[in-house]
Simulated scan of single mutants.
Amino acid sequence: MGIQDTPRASRLHIGLFGKRNVGKSSLINALTGQEISLVSPVPGTTTDPVSKSFELHGVGPVVFWDTAGLDDTGPLGRLRVEATRQAVEKTDLALLVLTELPQEELTWLSLFREKGIPVLVVLNQCDRLAESSLLSDAISQQMGGLPVLCVSAKTGEGIPQLRQAIQEAVPDDFWDLTITGDLANEGDVVLLVMPQDLQAPKGRLILPQVQTIRELLDKKCSVMSCTVDCLPATLTALKTPPHLIITDSQAFPTVWALKPPESLLTSFSILFAGYKGDIQAFLDGANAIAHLTERSTVLIAEACAHAPLTEDIGREKIPRLLRKTIGQGLSFDFVRGNAFPEDLSPYDLVIHCGACMFNRRHVLHRIAQAEQQKVPICNYGVVLAYLAGILDKVSFAK
């Protein structure tokens, strides 16, 4: 990804769902005007969800998810369908692609509606279907009156209309959500305190830092950066205290002790808790820490599938701090990447990372799953602020 590119997690995720050989891959190619997805007449060519980043004219930066057929069979087929089901968790807009009257598609339509995912029904291969208008009417009737878009990925028929429908189906507030919200506005001086450690190898900034800097510059804020050890000198160099200080959550106690009284304080992880998820759910989850005992079990969920490093925040620092508070008997389980248990009942608390690698839909799905199972869920930054005793003093974006 180039520095000018929109991060994948901030793009609109469009999932294409349908039976084998309905032309999902061909439809992606037609929508983008590029051969970005493998096409074959052999059923089941797409075996696992495949993602492709693209700038879709009139819509903006998107990720297309090309999924396996909903009617795949056999032991491997069932695994592929399950992988397709998991792709639903990160889908902002679903294209349900058909070439005949719906069967399995009706079950999937119910799933999309249950999860609040907008759906466009697409009748593909209209160039070779007899009486496609009658077929589209019948499909619409079976799908509760949803309009059906007739297209041909082969000839291009209906593709402009499908692009327009995608543009109109994007939730109104999708592009409005910002990282810093009302905490920073034009003309504000914002100081970023960014420890450089093993989590940010030499020559690199971690993604939340990069995204936050870019947004603050877009807001026409004045942005300064320093490491924790340089914070006193940086504050001295400023003519007036910064309006906002954003720190790495691990440095909360140090930064809180040094910050000017008039400066607001938050962390990258807390900002991303609201940007990617539900900050109120995470704040409620923090209250569960007071009820943990040495018989409790906590699940730590990391979005990155990186190999754990020395002094890893999720695998070492947070568990050590919680055991210091609760007791050495406190147990922890760990999951990374897309792995996340369906059954959360063994856990007394879930603590999620900042999820800079996930899109918001994916994080909200996990929050909803935890809430349905009545398991509190929190976030790295919120937990660290709670343990530092300053959760009621840090600022949250609105």
Score class of each variant (00 low, 15 high):
L205G: 03
L205I: 11
I206W: 10
L207H: 01
P208T: 11
P208D: 04
P208C: 11
Q209N: 02
Q209R: 06
Q211M: 15
Q211K: 00
Q211Y: 07
Q211D: 10
Q211C: 10
Q211E: 15
T212H: 09
T212P: 01
I213K: 02
I213S: 00
I213P: 06
R214C: 09
R214V: 09
E215H: 03
E215M: 00
E215Q: 06
E215L: 02
L216A: 06
L216N: 06
L216M: 05
L216F: 01
L217K: 09
L217G: 06
D218L: 03
D218C: 04
D218S: 09
K220N: 10
K220M: 03
K220H: 08
K220Y: 03
C221F: 08
S222L: 14
S222N: 12
S222M: 10
S222G: 08
V223Y: 02
V223R: 04
V223G: 04
V223M: 02
M224L: 14
M224G: 11
M224V: 12
S225D: 09
S225K: 05
S225G: 13
C226L: 03
T227M: 08
V228A: 05
V228N: 05
D229R: 10
D229M: 00
C230T: 08
C230D: 15
C230E: 15
L231A: 02
L231D: 10
P232L: 00
A233G: 03
T234F: 07
T234Y: 02
T234V: 11
T234L: 02
T236H: 11
T236E: 15
T236K: 11
T236P: 02
A237T: 11
A237W: 07
A237Q: 13
L238C: 12
L238V: 07
L238M: 14
L238T: 00
L238E: 13
T240Y: 09
T240C: 00
T240P: 01
T240Q: 15
P241H: 05
P241F: 01
P242L: 09
P242V: 04
P242T: 10
H243N: 13
L244S: 07
L244Y: 08
L244E: 03
I245E: 05
I246L: 06
I246K: 10
I246S: 00
I246M: 00
T247K: 06
T247L: 05
T247Q: 12
T247E: 04
D248C: 00
D248F: 12
D248V: 14
Q250A: 14
Q250G: 13
A251S: 15
A251V: 05
F252W: 00
F252I: 15
V255Q: 01
W256Y: 15
W256F: 15
W256I: 01
W256T: 07
A257F: 00
A257L: 05
L258F: 01
L258Y: 09
L258I: 06
K259E: 11
K259H: 06
P260K: 13
P260M: 12
P260L: 14
P260S: 07
P260C: 07
P261D: 15
P261W: 12
P261H: 14
P261S: 13
E262D: 13
E262W: 02
L264G: 14
L264R: 15
L264Q: 15
T266E: 01
